[in-house]
């Protein structure tokens, strides 16, 4: 028997994670920086690892995880690619390796100090099936902040998505607006990671946005469709997994991949 009281937060969590990841995926895919998701995840992990070494545990690890991911986002946002003569993806690669190194150093220190690192590992590999209402509220709050930010700075973000250099030349405060978006991306991804796991989030960032790019034109429409397809992947994947007793994370990833394949076929047939 399907226990709705138990599974309802899981369904809502999957839907919210899909919608928010799909929405910010529009910018990540549109600006060709898909590595950002991996980078933020490892920065969050590094933050949580050192938080754990300082004695924090359970939900409290979210704070150092957020600190790690936001700090990394700020470094990326404040670096001017033209001034440092490095492409965003090269900077992301550097940040990824640095944060991953820190995270594994911290995990190694857990072993040396004889401490458990289960809470920390759960951050990267959280499972949607354990999502509770408290997690859902956090996800809703971070997704709400993202939506408000995008609504407030929509025209600037649209220009930045086209080209940061061109936007700066047109007199747009790129560093301020771009850094703000990166911070929110870091917050949304960190909250989603610890609730539903890294694997699922990576696919929900890229697949719905890539599918939306196939189907519609115009920044607003792409964002809307990306969020809808992300939500459909999260909820649809969970419902299929519940009906077939297959692992929910894997099914959600496969549903989002299938949506992208269908979108590509629709574009080809048009």
């Amino acid at each position: 028997m399907f226990d709705l009281v138990f599974w309802l937060p899981v369904m809502v969590g999957g839907t919210v994670a899909g919608a928010s990841s799909g929405l910010l995926g529009t910018f990540i895919v549109g600006m060709r920086i898909p590595f950002l998701g991996v980078c933020v995840a490892h920065a969050a992990l590094a933050g949580a690892v050192f938080g754990s070494l300082c004695g924090l545990e359970g939900q409290a690890l979210l704070f150092p995880a957020l600190a790690g991911s936001v700090l990394t986002a700020l470094v990326l946002g404040l670096l001017d690619p033209q001034r440092v003569h490095l492409d965003d993806n090269v900077v992301l690669s550097f940040l990824f390796s640095a944060t991953m190194g820190l995270a594994f150093l911290g995990i190694g220190l857990h072993g040396i100090l004889g401490r458990s690192d289960n809470d920390v590992r759960g951050l990267l590999w959280g499972s949607l099936n354990f999502c509770r209402w408290r997690d859902v509220w956090l996800m809703l709050a971070s997704a709400g902040a993202l939506v408000i930010y995008i609504a407030l700075f929509f025209k600037e973000l649209r220009a930045i998505m086209f080209s940061r250099a061109d936007a700066a030349a047109a007199g747009i405060r790129v560093t301020v607006v771009w850094s703000g978006l990166l911070i929110l991306i870091a917050v949304v991804l960190t909250v989603n990671f610890q609730t539903v796991g890294g694997l699922m989030i990576y696919s929900l960032i890229s697949n719905p946005a890539a599918a939306a790019f196939q189907l519609v034109k115009g920044c607003r429409r792409v964002m809307l469709w990306s969020a809808i397809l992300g939500a459909a992947s999260g909820l649809g994947g969970f419902l299929i997994s519940a009906a077939t007793d297959l692992p929910s994370g894997a099914v959600i990833v496969l549903v989002s991949s299938a949506l992208l394949a269908v979108a590509a076929l629709i574009r080809r047939w048009r």
Binding site: T26, R32, E156, R158, A159, M161, F162, A167, A170, F213
Partner: peptide, 21 residues
């Protein structure tokens, strides 16, 4: 900046010129 994933229409690209103002 030409990217196949660019979702902007021609009208949206021209509108970037008004954004700062």
């Amino acid at each position: 900046p030409i990217r196949s994933e660019m979702p902007l229409t021609v009208r949206e690209v021209v509108a970037i010129g008004r954004t700062g103002r």
